[in-house]
Every structure is written in C-alpha cells, then in structure tokens.
Design a protein around this nucleic acid. Sequence first.
DNA 1: CTGTTAGCGCCTTCAA
DNA 2: TTGAAGGCGCTAACAG
Lengths: 333, 333
Amino acid sequence: MAVTIADVARHAGVSIKSVSNYLNDYPFMSDAMRARIAASVEALDYKVNASARGLRLGRTGAISLVVPELAQPYFAQLAEDVVVRAEHHGLHVSIEMTGADPQRELAYLAGDRGPQVDGLIMHAVGLARTSGEVTELRYPTVLIGDEIAAEGCDFVTMAHEAAAAAAVGYLAARGRTRIVALGAERETDAPSGARLRLDGYRGGLEDAGLAAAPELLVPAGLWRIGSGRQAIEALIDAGVEFDGVVGFNDSLALGAISALAHAGLDVPGDVSVIGFDDIDEAPFASPPLTTADPSRHVLAQTAVDMLVERIEGESGPARRVEAPFHIVERASA
Amino acid sequence: MAVTIADVARHAGVSIKSVSNYLNDYPFMSDAMRARIAASVEALDYKVNASARGLRLGRTGAISLVVPELAQPYFAQLAEDVVVRAEHHGLHVSIEMTGADPQRELAYLAGDRGPQVDGLIMHAVGLARTSGEVTELRYPTVLIGDEIAAEGCDFVTMAHEAAAAAAVGYLAARGRTRIVALGAERETDAPSGARLRLDGYRGGLEDAGLAAAPELLVPAGLWRIGSGRQAIEALIDAGVEFDGVVGFNDSLALGAISALAHAGLDVPGDVSVIGFDDIDEAPFASPPLTTADPSRHVLAQTAVDMLVERIEGESGPARRVEAPFHIVERASA
DNA sequence: CTGTTAGCGCCTTCAA
DNA sequence: TTGAAGGCGCTAACAG
C-alpha cells in the first residue's frame, strides 16, 4: 500500500494534523516543524491521495472540457486556452470528446460519463442541432459556442450571426455575387451555431442586395478540412457557378482553398474565400486566409472564470455573454 | 449532500450490499431485485462517487496522456487515437500539456501534477533533449515517441532515423542535392526523436553521396507551422541556396511550403518538400504534402495496450516496440 | 501552535 | 442471495 499521511507523521514524529496542516499551507506553523515534515515527505516520497482528499472535501480540483473532436484545430486550440486559464485558478482540466454525438453530450452533462469533476465546460454541437431540453445536470456547467436548452446554465457564445453577415458583406463589397455557404445545415430548426451562421449569411446577402440561391447552400458534415475539400469539389463537378465561399469554420475554408487550387482556380482571382475562427494555421495557407475571428481567447477565459464563480457558490440567474468578433484581412478574399 | 448508496438502498428497501452488487454487475442477483434497484437509482438520480470508489479500490479507471501541446495537429490527432483505444478498455483519458518543459514533464512522471490516475502515457520532448535519469515514477508508465532514461518504462517509438533517412533518399532520388533539415537541434547529445531524425538525415545524405552543409541544419524551436515558416524565410533572406526541405514534422513542412510560396518559389519545381507524421491536413496543402508516416495509430494503440497490461499487473522487463513507417507520396516532392 | 477523533461514500469480508 | 461492520486516506472540528 502507498505511503500515507500517518506514515509521514510517524516518520517526522509529529501528529497527523500537523502533516495535514503542512500539506494545506496552514500559515500558523513553526518553520522547524515545516522543515521537518518537508524532509519526511521527501524521504518517504509521499503523495497525497486525490481520491481520499476528494472524498473528504467533496471537491476534486478538476473541471472537464467537453468538445466534439480535438482533431479540429479550433477545438485543440480552444483546449489550450482553457487549460491555461484553469491553471490560473489552480484547477486541472480533463479534456473529453463526444464526436458531436448528442447521446454522449447528454451523458457528460448528466455526469454519467467522464471523471468526477467540480464543473463542466461544454461545446455541445450535437445537442444544439437537436431540439429538446436538457434537465439533468450533475455539475455547475458553462455552455460555450452553441446554445442548447438547459435550465440555469451560463452561456458564453460568439457572434455567429453578425460575424457571418460581416463575412458575406466583406465578399460582396469586393464584387462577389454568387457566394457559397460552406457548412450550411439542411435542418435548421434549432438555434445552433451552424444555424445562426446560416441566418447571418442570409442576412448579409440581403443587406448586400444579393439573391439567395439554394444550390449555394452546401452542408459539410463534420467541419474538417477534408469535408470542405470534398464539398467544394462536388460543387465544381456539378457545374455550379460561384465566385465566393464563406467557410463556416477555417478548416472548411482551407478545404475549399485546397479544392479550388486542385481545380486550377485562382484564389481570390476567380473565387474569394473567407473563413471563421482564425485558427493558428490560417495565416500560413496559400493564400493566407481571411477570416472572422470570434475571439477564442476571450471565450475560453470568460467560460473558465464564470465556471469558477459558480463552483465557488455564485447562484444568480443564468448569464449570457457574447464575445466580440472582427474580420482579419489577409489574402484569400 | 449528494444521494448515496445508502439512500438508494433505503428507497428500494434492500441492503446496501445489494445496491453495491447491482452497481458492480454482480451476477447472482434476482431480476426482480435488479429491476427494483435500477428504478430507485433512476428515481433518485444516483451517481456513484468516483472519489469514494477510488479511495476504496485504489483505482481510478483513468489514465493520463501527457503531450507537449495540443495545438500541434499531430498531438491532437494522437490524443484522439489514444482516447478511442482507451475507451475500448473501459478507461477514461485525461489529457495534459507540458509545453515541452522538462520540469513539467518530470512533475507529471513523479505524480506531482495532474489528476490521480492508474497509469500514464507520455511523449516527453523536453526531457528527451536533456540528459539525466528519471527515477521517480508514480504510476505504471509508457513512454512514446522520444526516449528518455527512465528505469523499467515500456517504450513505444517510431522509426525516427530510418524514416528521416528515407525522406532524404526520396529527395536525393529526385535530383535534390542541397537539402535542408528543418527542425535540426543545435544540442544533439541526448537521443531524442529530434536527434535521431537528424542522424537519419545525415545517414541519408551519406547514402546518397551528398555532402552535409552546416547552413542547411535549421532549428525551429517548437515544431509549429509558424516556426517552420519563419525559419525558411530567414534562410531565404540569408541567401542560402537549397532545393529540398525535410521537415522534421508536418507542421514545419507546411510552414516551409508557406514561406516558399510567399517567396514566389515553386514547390516542387524549385524546392521539394517532404514532411514527417502524415497529419490529417497533409493531403490538403498546396501542393499536397509528401511525408513519412510513422504509423500514429499503431503507436497509440500499442501504447494503450501495453499500459493496460502493466496496470493489470504485468511485471516483466521493460519492453521496446518500434512502429513501422512508410513514405506517403503526394505532390510536394 | 499541536494532538485526537469522527466521518466523507464505497466495497468487502464475515456471518446468516 | 442478503445484512452489519470496518476501513481506504484525508480534513475539520474541537480540545489542549
């Protein structure tokens, strides 16, 4: 069996309580005692047992971040931001993946999956596309990105609609008239991020006095670079004419650029492409990707901070925060 | 306070032991009892307390995966592979980041950081560059990718050297004579993956009868796309001539392609570029990236399987497995 | 400043 | 098949 606090106490010739005090940085302790205990901890290679402490305190010191998939650069980069901020609060982050499966998302929210934590941050893409209320919440929870019906959850979102409209406007201002919405969903009932971006796209078109054309609404399954590439290839093969693409995320936009290059089309000469997210790779594409930046850092930081407040007992009504966006001009549009 | 096993027992009118049996799928139980308990669990929304169970059993059901940074696509994608395989064993994965800082890597190995788990998988880039032995290991541990001196650890690696040599050979066979090693380290004492790739590069050069030139060894800090871009830009600015680049990972190679495109150089016409990893984005670059694929899936799967064996008591000597590699031919070289 | 003690929720003997 | 009791390692009263 592992070495316990009692072993340390015995070794140091002090009481268990003193060791516990030491471990928890109790301020009123003689330096001599502190040093003696430190030496014993070192000598015995003692480590606190997190299960025992967690059982006792009813707290684990960890939160979960639940995202659809890490292989999407946006989520990987968001995860880094969340980890950094959580560390700032002395919290540890457990990262979980759902594959955008609503069942798995529900299971995480209900606490039936994943490790025991003190709170949860989730970007629920799958549930956002379904409608239906989530009632079972095991932990203090902050939802990010996509809104779902869950009572009492704080929600940190981005300017899906305004940013998408601005992206369309950006292309329209450059004379583009046949603009593809890459990532548009077929089923648009629930107010998911995808749906809001589509609404923004439509609004942007209208503002610019452009007609909406159903063949320019192209869905893309999971928003990966490969899906974007395939979708645009199919569009070209189908003979659909277009001179602009709004990728509903950067991976999709990058896939579009790849397909366009493959087809021998010039970006932005023949087709302008604009993305959404401003992932780290965006500046390095050929051409560098113009994109709508929804302030990933702000989102991550706000979500963590709000969750910490909830964990510490804040019990006010559900809050809703929207991170600002801006268009990052580069060369693809 | 949360609902406990005792509450469930009371609600169902059975003993605590029976509830415990139910929770642990004890086979000898009447269906009626099982159903009754299930109903109570449902009614009370009971969740087992992982801390208590962990304390009692001395096991958490989780493992940690420790990598330098998630924003590198390779590690994000590796993480997905590990999560999928771990799930197959009923294990949960906690993902941790070190920023390639040797101190943090040590802390994870010693169990001074991160959540309590049953085992650890680590890709220790920072420590691999340092030399020195790691003696404090809190958990059963499997090292992946880069080798470090740690007694008794299983180790799953990739064909760093052979793959790098093959990459150089691939370029040489296409008539390239001035080949850059992008990601080459200045300090090359410890047998890190970076060092082995450099060794392979040198061997490949020699096999091809090509001279090594110190100005073609270019370091790149963290192996991100931005570092690759910067390094190659600097090389061009410095007036160094070269007609091939071996990126020590794909992000670096992609950065090289970006720099080359920016400088108006044709890939592979003027300069051939080959990468290492075969990340998901590689096929979608312009041009599509030729790369050495070190079998990420095999590596992830093997590492998880070996760790599970260790957790389950396997106590044989440290094992060492090398995943195979092959060159994926695309258009950049 | 330091020591003693009572659980936190769960699983597992042991006995029935 | 079920019930009672003990203890995993830790912290927070409560005394001293």
